[in-house]
């Protein structure tokens, strides 16, 4: 049943490294992560890789397989031919720690810069009332497993290290949109979306949406509506008055997200 696959895995650390070739057994039904584990168990016990759930639920095993950003646990070997060389490299946008493990602290720093959920001060626990249709928009974004593949892919940081300080990437623009669409949130994040998270850097290429393993419509459902709201604020002369009032949560342009 099994065959020997040609694997080419990036080995090294922050000082350098390169691709190494391995011939490794593959059995029916296996995924790339299984093969990496077999390498660990039989040839390279110290090969560094992150993983937890092996079912596409935790977002730990992100890497690039033949150049495509993917979850290794959800990439079936049957999608490759038996004589194909399979190249596995760490996510390119983040600094390498060792082998397939990268330093993703950028993402945690950006997460900490998003102003948190703030419910009305007088609302008691247990008294929250929200309609299903109103929570579904944010629920779509809360499917995010924080694999950071979208942030790894977005050219605004992938090709421009210097933008990392001023741009938070699709994951956290989406987080801002998610809070913005929360039916009971009271904070206006439009200014920080521009000034601290760099929404202007996004030019809607949708590459982030393409790689999202959760199939979240990041660009269409999160970023574009947020851009529109930000534009409202920038050009609306009445804005300074309007913002004194509690925001009307129904003025959104996004249609309710379809539930998958």
């Amino acid at each position: 049943m099994g065959y020997l696959a040609k694997f080419r895995v990036w080995r090294g650390d922050n000082e350098g490294g390169g691709l190494q070739d391995y011939a490794v057994e593959v059995n029916e039904g296996e995924v790339v992560l299984d093969i990496v584990h077999r390498l660990q168990a039989t040839q390279t016990p110290d090969l560094a890789v992150r993983w937890n759930c092996k079912a596409g639920k935790c977002g730990s095993c992100s890497a690039e397989v033949n150049g495509r950003p993917r979850l290794m646990c959800m990439t079936r070997m049957s999608t490759f031919t038996e004589d194909e060389v399979i190249t596995v490299t760490p996510m390119r946008t983040f600094p390498v720690i060792r082998d397939l493990v990268t330093d993703v602290s950028y993402n945690y720093e950006k997460a900490r810069m998003v102003p948190s959920f703030a419910p009305p001060a007088d609302l008691e626990p247990g008294d929250y009332r929200m309609a299903q249709i109103d929570v579904e928009r944010s629920q779509e974004f809360r499917k995010c497993i924080e694999c950071f593949l979208c942030n790894n892919t977005c050219h605004a940081v992938r090709d421009h290290e210097e933008n990392k300080t001023s741009f938070s990437g699709p994951r956290f623009l989406m987080r801002i949109a998610e809070l913005d669409m929360h039916p009971l949130d009271t904070v206006d994040r439009r200014q920080v979306a521009v000034e601290e998270h760099g929404i202007g850097y996004c030019n809607i290429t949708k590459c982030c949406t393409d790689v999202c393993p959760e199939h979240i419509a990041i660009t269409d459902n999160a970023i574009i509506p947020l851009k529109e709201r930000v534009a409202d604020k920038k050009y609306d002369p009445l804005f300074s008055i309007a913002s004194l009032f509690r925001r009307n949560k129904d003025d959104r342009t996004a249609p309710p997200a379809a539930k998958v």
């Binding site: 247990g126 009332r129 299903q132 929570v135 949130d185």
Partner: peptide, 24 residues
């Protein structure tokens, strides 16, 4: 347990809802 779940809503959790808008 109920207090602990309600508290999650104050932290921002979005559970599925009943028709009256409570946690389903």
């Amino acid at each position: 347990a109920p207090q602990r779940v309600w508290e999650l809503e104050t932290y921002g959790a979005l559970f599925d809802r009943t028709p009256e808008g409570k946690i389903s």
